[in-house]
Computed example of a mutant assay.
Amino acid sequence: MTETGPQGERIAKWLARAGVASRRDAEKLIGEGRVKLNNTVVTHPATFVAAGDLVVVNGTLVDAPERTRLWRYHKPTGLVTTHKDPQGRPTVFEKLPPGLPRVVSVGRLDLNSEGLLLLTNDGALARRLELPANGWIRRYRVRVFGTVDPAGLAALAQGVTIDGVRYGAVEAGLDSRKGDNSWLSVGLREGRNREVRRVMAHLGLQVTRLIRVAYGPFQLGNLPRGTVDEVPTKVLREQLPAA
């Protein structure tokens, strides 16, 4: 069964494109009975939405998906990349400039990390851009405290296992050193949770600053901290991998 066709579009994909949640999280919402289609609770993800249908999530009417859009955001430190934080910490989405539609992030940056965070109104796109199969490299500038061993950095290109977790190849090189503080350039394709910090700790290095400067073809450049810049549609079409 296809996801689009005469019947319409699968509801989980529709919700993802509408920016409500990722497709996987949309399926969870459906399983919890929190989604209605034309005033009827949706009970199965193989439900289709057609033009003119009314979709309600948690009692709120969801607007039909807009065209797919993507933004670059310069995330400051001190914000968590989540829509709601159980600990009450400020979130990226609370601090975004006014006027944006509902967006989701492409991957995350942790509380103490900064730099480029991609945002989109299309949850399905976000999921696709996060997949390692895209081959997109996430690039970082990393300040570390400790003694840097260039050979140890080079060995990361073969991947490394830490506490039973296997991390893929990591590109890492020394840019500059001043006393016990050094700046490194780091590139990786998987982007697992806190991967850079864990790999550096494995080498006996403490990360004191972590800045993401690129995500695939998209660059942080000179985007001011805390600001958002939309990627032109033409550029988006040129750079997106095939669906």
Rank of each mutant, 00 (worst) to 15 (best):
R197I: 14
G8V: 11
G159P: 05
L205N: 07
V165P: 07
V106K: 01
P150V: 04
I162N: 13
N121T: 02
V106G: 10
S113I: 06
L129R: 12
S182F: 02
V35K: 08
Y140H: 03
L54C: 12
A16T: 09
E230P: 01
R237I: 07
K36H: 14
L188A: 10
L174K: 08
R10K: 15
G226M: 00
R89M: 10
L205S: 05
L188M: 14
K95P: 00
V106Q: 02
R102C: 04
P86L: 09
P90A: 01
W136C: 00
L119C: 06
V103K: 03
L15R: 07
S182C: 12
L96P: 01
V207D: 09
G5P: 06
N222V: 09
L116Q: 05
R10L: 15
D85T: 10
A155C: 07
W136V: 00
I211F: 08
V49Y: 07
L184G: 11
T147N: 13
V42M: 06
P232E: 05
R225T: 09
R89C: 12
G59Q: 03
L100Y: 00
P150E: 02
G221T: 11
V170S: 05
R10A: 13
V106Y: 02
A242Q: 10
V228F: 01
G187A: 15
V92Q: 01
S182L: 06
M1F: 12
K178H: 14
L184F: 11
R108Y: 06
D175F: 03
V142C: 15
V41I: 15
R34G: 10
S185T: 15
L236P: 07
V104G: 06
L129M: 13
G179W: 04
R17A: 08
G88S: 03
P98M: 14
R102Y: 00
D85W: 04
P6L: 10
T2C: 07
V49Q: 05
T91P: 01
V142S: 10
T68N: 01
Y140M: 10
P241A: 09
G123V: 00
E94F: 00
I30K: 05
P90Q: 02
R128P: 00
G107W: 06
Y215D: 10
G123N: 02
T40N: 12
D229N: 14
R198G: 09
V170M: 15
A124Y: 05
A172M: 13
G159E: 04
G216L: 09
L205M: 12
W136I: 02
T4Y: 08
A157W: 02
R23D: 13
A26S: 14
K13L: 11
I11M: 03
F145C: 13
G123Q: 01
